[in-house]
Design a protein around this nucleic acid. Structure first.
Lengths: 250, 250
DNA sequence: CGATTCCTTGACTGACCTCAAGTGCCGTGG
DNA sequence: CCACGGCACTTGAGGTCAGTCAAGGAATCG
């Protein structure tokens, strides 16, 4: 089972550093973790021809909610968020896509959700209809896509469980544990976990269904309790992973 | 696009009445709305041979969280819920399956969620490994399964948006609107919508991430405001659908 | 007609939201 | 070099709303 795209295992570090800007899908570092893993030369060539590499700057959306310009995007570097906006104007993040994951809605009509990077991101986009055709043509791609969708479904349901919690401390703990598993690196003291936080406070709030103030207060509390340390906005050190995991349990 | 299994359109009324207990998949009333819609005779025959019809009584689980007895189930009548239990012992419902929908995890290891009926339900079960094999064999089935998974993903994300709301009144409104769209029938006054509520208060609470008391209070409030009427536990009449939809907007 | 289960209602507490002010960081420009 | 402004984040005070605990009512079944 290769295509555990949404498992909690960290992605290869190479996928998070400077973009080698591959000239073809064949050389893409995503290939081993993603949909295209076992595609043959023909399919890979077709994929290549319909591909557009894009560099998304912070806040620059790839698609709007209800957009008809239908594109699929393979995340190559960074994190991409799926958002649903509420009538009050604030946004709820309903999904995240990490390197190797596909965002967008194959075989759909319009995109039900907005797609934008968290920070900056690099993606390869494919016209939806072309990708759909390719999927119907190569059953292996179709199967990979199915596994990917099922994994995302599991992930979404795990998030639902976390969101349903009423306590902010629990949500924050779940979030930090997930981030540590995704993009954390061991620090000098191997018990510590260091991570570059790609999310703003507002984005964390949107993700967890909290206000920015509550997020800030919870992080301050964890800082006070020596569970985490944050020298600045972007860097976060987790001292007491066990305590976090415990809070995240329930 | 036939297999819009999770669209909000109501299902054919026939799927909700007394079970004709079909003797073969060929005669199954689900066939037109479900995965097996366009399968050929061979595939249908194979499906038939691995099929077990089951009648689930209230609370009788089809699978436990972490269960290794892997089955897939096609819902024929009633509603089936997917639950994740928290360390505190209460359950969060992370998904619902209506007639025509498949529950369980194809190509997975263990079931990550508990599966049980809401009230009573009739399902057809299939051994997972056999179903997997059939899926790999018939690309049309695989494709249908993919569409089904993508629809469920959209549904899960819409639920996440609703769950993220902090206000109980909003959650209840979203829930009632969803129920009305799913299983509601026009009443004597066509503006009214009548429905048989399959969920207990506890189940509504589990679904929305609320307590049973809050659910009860919110329904009492709506009753007081003449938005709904509930002569008893099981019957619900929605007088003011517009007000509900408005509350559900945000 | 109990007994059980499910639902409703009440009083209270506490957590999170709201509104508002304050702090630190960073780039710009004097 | 410092002054300034903008921005994101932090902190504070107060109110609201959902959770908790507890009691009472209604339906269902023997």
């Amino acid at each position: 089972m290769l295509a555990q795209a949404t498992s909690l295992a960290p992605y290869p570090a190479a996928t998070r550093v400077a973009d080698p800007a591959p000239t073809s899908c064949r050389d893409c570092p995503m290939r081993s973790v993603s949909l295209c893993g076992t595609l043959d030369e023909d399919a890979l060539g077709e994929l290549d021809r319909m591909r557009t590499a894009r560099h998304l700057r912070p806040g620059q959306p790839l698609a709007w909610e209800g957009d008809d310009d239908q594109q699929l995007a393979m995340v190559r570097d960074g994190i991409v968020r799926l958002t649903a906006s509420t009538a009050r104007g604030d946004e709820q993040i309903v999904g995240l896509a990490f390197p190797g994951q596909l965002v967008g809605r194959p075989f759909g009509r319009g995109s039900a959700f907005g797609i934008a990077p968290v920070g900056t991101a690099r993606v390869c986009t494919f016209p939806r209809t072309h990708f759909d055709r390719l999927t119907r043509q190569y059953s292996e791609l179709s199967h990979r896509l199915l596994l990917h969708a099922l994994d995302e479904l599991d992930q979404a349901r795990r998030w639902m469980k976390a969101l349903s919690s009423t306590r902010a401390s629990h949500k924050i703990a779940v979030f930090l544990v997930e981030m540590a598993d995704r993009i954390g690196e061991p620090g000098r003291n191997p018990a510590e976990i260091v991570l570059k936080m790609p999310f703003s406070r507002q984005q964390i709030a949107d993700l967890l269904g909290l206000t920015i103030e509550t997020v800030s207060r919870q992080l301050s509390r964890l800082r006070l309790e020596q569970v985490i340390h944050s020298p600045n906005r972007n860097d976060l050190v987790i001292f007491d992973m066990a305590a976090l995991r415990h809070s995240a349990e329930d």
